[in-house]
Amino acid sequence: MTQIPVFDGHNDTLLRLWQRREPDGGARAFLEGGEGGHIDLPRAREGGLFGGLFAIFTPSRQLGVDYMRMMREAAYDVPTPEPLPIAEAQAATLGMAATLSRVARASGGGVAICRSVAEIRDAKARGALAAVLHIEGAEAIAPDLDALHVLHAAGLRSVGPVWSRPNVFGHGAPFRFPSSPDVGPGLTQAGKALVRECDALKIVIDLSHLNEAGFWDVSKLSRAPLVATHSNAHAVTPHARNLTDRQLDAIRVSGGLVGLNLATCFLREDGRMRADTPLTAAARHLDHLIDRLGEDHVGLGSDFDGAVVPEAIGDVAGLPHLFEALKAHGFDDAILEKIAWRNWLDVLARVWGG
C-alpha cells in the first residue's frame, strides 16, 4: 500500500522526552530514534507522520494506583486524581515547551514548530515534521489568563481545559467503564472565561477530556468549530471518555472534528486496555463516527506515548497497517486521505483562519 501522509491530533511524546531529564531535552533521543516509546523522527518518517498536535500534559501523583492494570479489568472506576498545584503545572509546562523548542533547534530544519496551517503545509512540502503545541489540562494557566497569552505568543494553538481530574476551569470525564459521560458539573465561571478568550485568540478548544456538562457549556459559548482531538463513539464503547451520538451531532453541526483515539480501552467493546485488540475495532468506531459526523469531520488522534495501542500498529511506524486494515474494511483512498490529514488541516484553518 502506498504510504499515506498523516497529521495526528494527539500524542504525549513531549512528556516522555521531558521525563528523561536530559540537558538537550531529549532531542538526540527523538531525532536519532531507538530509545523506546511510540514516536521519534525516524519512525515518524517511516510511518508517514508529517505533523500533529504535541501535547503538554502534567502527570498526577498516582499514589501507588496502577491505572493501566485497573483498565484491564471487565469494569473499572479509576480514582480521580487530586487537582494539581499551579506552580507544579507551570514548571512542567515550561519544561515540555522548552523540550519541543530544543528538539526543533537541534533538528536542523527536520522539525518545525507551526502556528498556522500555511506553516504546516510548508513543513509538509519540505519534508519536515510539523509540531503544533497543545496543552492537555490547563492547570498551568491561572484564572487571570495571563499565561494563556504568553503561551499563545510562544506557539500554543490548542488547549484542553481539563484532563480527567478537576481544576479551576472545570471537571473531566473519569476513566470509568461502563459509564455515561454525564458524570458531574461543567465549566466554572473561570472555565467559561477561558473558552471566550481561546475564541478571541483563535485557539482550538479540545473537548476530549471534558465531561458531558462541560462539553455542552463549550458548545453554548464558543463560536468556533467543536473539536475533540482524541475521542471515540460511546455507542460502540460505553466509556465515560467517549462521545454520545448527541455530542457527535453537535460537532457535525458546528463544522468540527473528532480524532479517532487508538487507546484500546476506548476502542474495545469491553473497554479493556489490551494490546491484542484487532484493527476491526478501529474500523467499527470510524463507521459510527462517519455515520454521525460525515466523512469530512473525522481524523486521527492516536494517543501515542500516552496509552496502549493495538499491537498490529505498535508505534508510529505501524500507521500504514492501520490504513491497510481500513482499506480492507471498505474505505476508499479519498476517504482515507481525509481521515489521515486533509480534515485536520481544514478544521484548523476554520478555527485559526487562513
Rank of each mutant, 00 (worst) to 15 (best):
A75Y: 01
R342H: 10
G255R: 11
A98I: 02
H329P: 03
L53W: 09
L348E: 01
L293Y: 03
R342T: 13
L148D: 08
G271F: 14
L17Q: 06
P81T: 11
V78S: 15
G186S: 01
P178M: 05
F323Y: 12
D206K: 12
K220S: 15
E311D: 12
D144W: 07
I120R: 02
N261R: 12
A228R: 06
E22A: 11
M71Y: 02
E136P: 07
C265N: 08
V65T: 13
R342G: 10
M70D: 04
T280M: 00
R16K: 08
R350F: 06
D40N: 10
A125S: 15
R72Q: 15
V309R: 01
G95S: 02
A283N: 04
R69Q: 13
R196G: 08
D315K: 00
V236L: 08
R121V: 10
L133F: 15
V347C: 15
G33I: 05
Y76A: 14
V309N: 02
I39Q: 05
R176P: 14
A235M: 03
G255M: 12
D333M: 11
E119T: 13
G314M: 07
E136T: 10
I39D: 04
F54G: 01
H297W: 00
G47M: 08
R121D: 14
F30S: 10
E139N: 10
V195Y: 01
M68G: 11
G306I: 01
G34C: 06
R102D: 04
A200G: 15
F57L: 10
L49T: 13
D346P: 00
E311Y: 00
H288F: 13
P166C: 04
G259P: 02
